[in-house]
Structure formats: C-alpha cells, structure tokens
Design a binder for these strands. Structure first.
Lengths: 335, 335
DNA sequence: CTGAAAGCGCTTACAG
DNA sequence: CTGAAAGCGCTTACAG
C-alpha cells in the first residue's frame, strides 16, 4: 500500500501538505490540491486510519462487549441497530474478545489497548468489577439493560415496568382474573422491573397478587414449558399467562396444547420481545414489542455524542414499548 | 493511560528494555525484569496494541464483511463460531461498515486502512468487483459460501450437493415417488449446487425430473408458503417436499395444514439448516444439518494459518452435512 | 545485558 | 500557501 510519503513524492510536495488535502484544510492552493489528488488517485492511496488514530488518540471504532451469544435474538437485533447507526459514519464496530479466564483481564484496559472511542455493553452483570471500572473512567460507555450510569456512561433499556403492566391490563380487559406471570431469571434490573410491572398491573386491575401464579425460568422454550406445566397443574390454574420472552411463550403454548387445551380459547398467552418468529408462526403471538433495533441505534447516537463532546453526559433512556395484539389472547371463557 | 515511557521512567530503564520484557525477550536480567514488571503492575500499564500494530504491520484483528443482517440465523451462528475461535487468541473481530453508496468504496482499501490481518467474507456476490480485488491481493481472505479462491483466499462451504441428495434419498427410502424441491434464489453457487443435488438424487432414485415439482423462493417463511401452495394446486401434487431453508419449510408446513392436510401423514417435509427452531418447535423438523458454527470456527483457523504463514494457501473446504430425522417425514401413504 | 536511534504512517503547531 | 520537525506509543537492529 502506498503511504503518505509515496503520495508526497509523487506529487512533489511535503507530507504535511498531503495531510492537509486529505483532511480538507482550506490553506492549500487549488493547484497543489489538484496535484495531490491526482497522485492519490494514481497510487490508489488510502490513508491508514490506524496511524492517524495513534496521533489523534482516536480510532473511529466502537467496541461492543457481549457475554450473550450472537445467536440470541436480542443480541442480533441490537447489533443490527448498532450496525445501521454506524453505516456511513466512518466508524467500524469491534467485538472485544473477553478473556474472563484471565484474572487480570479488564474491560477498560482492553478498550484502551484497542483505542476504541467508546463501548456498548450488553449482558454484563452490574456487579461485575469491570462495570465499575468503566463507569468511573472517562471512556464513553453505553449500558444496554444494565442499570449503571456515570459521568460518561449512559444506560438504555426498554420500559420494562410499563410493558408488563400493559400486558396485564390487556388480559384484564378481556375479562381475565387469573393472570400468571412467567418471569425471567431474577436479579438483573430488567427482570426485576418486569416483575414489579406485573404486580403493579395486578394491583391496578383490582386483583390480588397470588404467589403461586408467579414462576421463574431462563427465558428459553423449555423453561417456558416447564413453568407452564407447574401453572397448569395448580388446583386453580390461570386463564392468562404472561411470559418474559417470546421463546418461553412458545414453550408455554406447546405445553398448554399438550395438556389438551388450546390457545387462546382456553388460555391466553402473551410473549415479550416481538421477535421475527412471533409474527411468522401461526397463531401469531400477542407480545410486547421491544424496539431492540432502536435501542441499538440510539445507543450509538449517544455514544457518538459523548465521543464528540467531552462534556456530554447521557441521560437514562427508557425506550417505549407497546403491546402487539395478535391471536394468542382472547376473552376469557365464560364458564 | 500510562505509556511505555512512564513505565521506563518509573522502573529507571529505557523503553527498549521495557519493550523487551513485555515481549518476553530472553536477554533481560532477572533483576531488571522484576523492576519493570513491578512498574507495570504499579501503573496498571497495558501496551497499546494499535501502536504496536503500526510498527509490526499487524493489528491482531480479523475483519468480517457481511451484506446479510445480523438477524439472519446463518449469520449469527457463523459469527458465534468465529467469535469462539477468536476467544483467547488475542484477536478481536471488526465488522467493516461497507459503504456501497460510495462508488470509490473498496473492500480491500478498507481492510488496509484498518490494517486487519485477514477478512472473512459472507453474503457477497462472486461478481462483486470487491471480491476480485480481494482474491488478487495478498490479504488473507476466507469466503464463506462464495465460490472464489486465490493464492491467499480460501473458500469454505457446506457440501450442498450431497446434502440435498441425501434428503431425496431419505424420502425415496420412505417410498415417496413424487418429491418436490423448493429452491432458494438461483445464482449463488450454494443454491445451484443444491438444485443439482436434487436432480442427482432424483436420478439416483430412479425417478424422473419433473419441472413442475421445482419451485424457487427467497428462503423465507412466506416464500415457502407460496411455493408450497403452487405445489399443492398441481393436478398431481407431491407427497414429499424438500426446502432449501428451515424457514421456508415452516412456511410450507403451514400452507399444507391450511389445505387441510397434515405433516407428515399426508406430506413429508424436509428443511435445510437445522436452526434452533427446527428442534424446538413441534413437530420437530426433519432437516439437513449444516454445521454453520463449525464453518465459522474453521474459517478462522484457516485465516490465522494464512496470517501466520505467508506461504500458506488454503484448500477449498467442504464441510460435511447430515440429515437430522425428526417428525416431519414418514412413509408415503399407501392409497 | 542495556539503551540510543530510527522508523511504522500519520497530524499539528510553527516558521517562513 | 508550504514544509521541516516533533511526536503519537510502540519495536528492532545495532553498538556498547
């Protein structure tokens, strides 16, 4: 690859001048500018962004820190949003290969070493020591679904609380009084907020919270099946089930059908996420739309705002969600 | 962040010496080594890999070039394999933001500019001019499913031809004589090879190729539905349908059921990919397992082999596939 | 065993 | 308007 020196020599100017035309400085004569551009074209020169980054202390690179596999539908949609926001911005995305087996491994050091301009973090526990390091550093950071903020660290999430409240309210309006909730693993604020939303919804519908109507699973298909089984075996099973993910809703539906019952005639089911499969499979799943793509896009917008403005502190961002009503919820059966 | 200079000063040695201990050169006295390591720990120093890359002309970075969204199940599984192979290798993954709207955009220049050590390419047409540039360059490249090779460019794919042959053979052994194929968009070698495999399988089963049993769709759920509808409306509809993706198989199954027929009692259906959903949904889908994860892993292995050995030319790699028999195929109904 | 110097490919005051 | 020089954070012959 041709370097800036080659261009300078070919154009008969100094490297400083070449640098100036590359960076569109105004103080270059038209004549020189043309000479240089011609040399650039001729040599098919492309500036080395790594070298530029060394002096500018920038890399035009955004890091992502993920502990969840790419095959996770949330992750892939988040990345799709991130990618879309990055396209044509001059930034590339770098996935940081975490090395948790190394006790000295540090997110922050890794980011520094790669010189990334900012980082978006997803799927990391808030008590991970790396998170702490990040929020106290000046490295622009966006946490997705991890409830942490700092002067240079933002937090973006779906309005989980409201989302589940709306789901309860929907069932309640359909006449359901026995509404169960299959939560995801508790601990992460995301899961906790959803559970609170469920309890708030129950309260607002004038119902009473019944602990046996609350199950926990790991968001998976099988987890949803197992939790549903427990609910169905209750002496007084629910007529409506809200699940914390589409996958667990699919699992619950299968279990319900295995028990000889049908959805939504006997039992209404609501999912969470509105993944591709929720719309594609029949009957279409009633589910909470989480605008994951948009979360990806906005996390980049805030990240870049921080990168380009050293004083900027991002707000906490709560992306709205809404219920997508399809065909797995119906009026409660009148007995 | 502390730099190598800070460490040198703190340890009372030269930067050259610090560099030597960082890189485990043997010609450093134990005493000095200890002093330096102490300084490194004290300053929480981490070498800047970007600066190192500038002089070594390496970046310990692997690029990926994708035209297909992250949400595509093939892509996410491929990336998962790539990521796994990269973990603990010291390499990070960088997604190159393509800028196709810029007529001067060049894959190769982008890679050079980012200084990536190699690149894996997926979902790019073989007649894309960027592909040509890549195979004629010395940049280590692995093409996934794009039939292109070069001195420093490898090609890895699933054994598509055989895969579909096996599918035909399976149906044939179950007594099916009317076997249809719903292809993906023709053009890419992947799709063409699968179609050839279908025709070969038909021939080997002693059947005759019937053009009306061959439909084309875009691999999607809806595409599968529509193609299945055409097949079902044939005067002499097939009893077995092989699809070029799991999604189109799901679509076909739904269409079959909408026609009041059932799978596998009336019609057997085979998918392609063995995605997560193929095993999770009931009835489990009989499908061709494509080891996408492994394709990701191996593409990295060959890429790194090239990076570390300037003379290495990778072979063409055909990953084996096999049929996973679940519950959507059965003996043909005897009339 | 140790370190001064040159260099990787750039940018940026600064002098002219 | 142009360019020489210093510097970003490293590595690597090479001299001692």
């Amino acid at each position: 690859m041709a370097s800036i020196h080659d261009v300078a020599k070919h154009a008969g100017v100094s490297v400083a001048t070449v640098s100036k035309v590359i960076n569109n400085y105004p103080d270059v004569s038209d004549k020189t500018r043309k000479k240089v551009n011609k040399a650039i074209d001729h040599l098919r020169y492309q500036p080395n962004v790594v070298a530029r980054g060394l002096v500018k202390r920038r890399s035009w690179t955004v890091g992502v820190l993920l502990t969840v596999p790419f095959t996770n539908p949330f992750v892939s949609e988040l990345l799709e949003g991130i990618k879309t926001a990055l396209e044509n911005s001059g930034y590339d995305l770098v996935r940081l290969s975490t090395r948790f087996d190394d006790p000295n491994y540090s997110f922050l050091k890794h980011c520094r070493s790669r010189n990334v301009d900012g980082v978006v973090v997803f799927g990391v526990d808030k008590d991970n020591r790396g998170v702490d390091e990040l929020i106290h550093s000046d490295l622009p950071t966006m946490f997705v679904d991890t409830d942490q903020v700092g002067k240079r660290a933002g937090y973006i999430t779906t309005d989980n609380h409201n989302a589940i409240r709306m789901a309860v309210s929907h069932l309640s309006e359909l006449g359901h009084r026995k509404i169960a909730y299959i939560s995801g693993t508790l601990g992460p604020s995301m899961a906790n907020l959803r559970l609170e939303g469920y309890r708030a919804g129950i309260r607002e519908s004038g119902l009473e919270y019944n602990p046996s109507y609350m199950e926990v699973c790991d968001y998976s298909f099988d987890g949803g099946s197992q939790a549903a089984r427990k609910l169905l075996e209750l002496p007084n099973p629910p007529t409506g089930i809200i699940c914390a993910s589409d996958m667990s809703a699919f699992g619950a539906i299968q279990e319900i059908e295995r028990h000889g019952l049908s959805v939504p005639e006997d039992i209404s089911v609501i999912g969470f996420d509105n993944t591709y499969y929720a719309q594609v499979f029949k009957p279409g799943l009633t589910t909470v739309n989480q605008n994951i793509f948009n979360i990806g896009v906005r996390s980049i917008e805030f990240l870049i705002a921080m990168v380009e403005n050293a004083e900027y502190s991002p707000p906490v961002i709560m992306e709205p969600s809404h219920l997508v009503i399809r065909h797995t919820t119906a009026k409660v059966q009148t007995v």
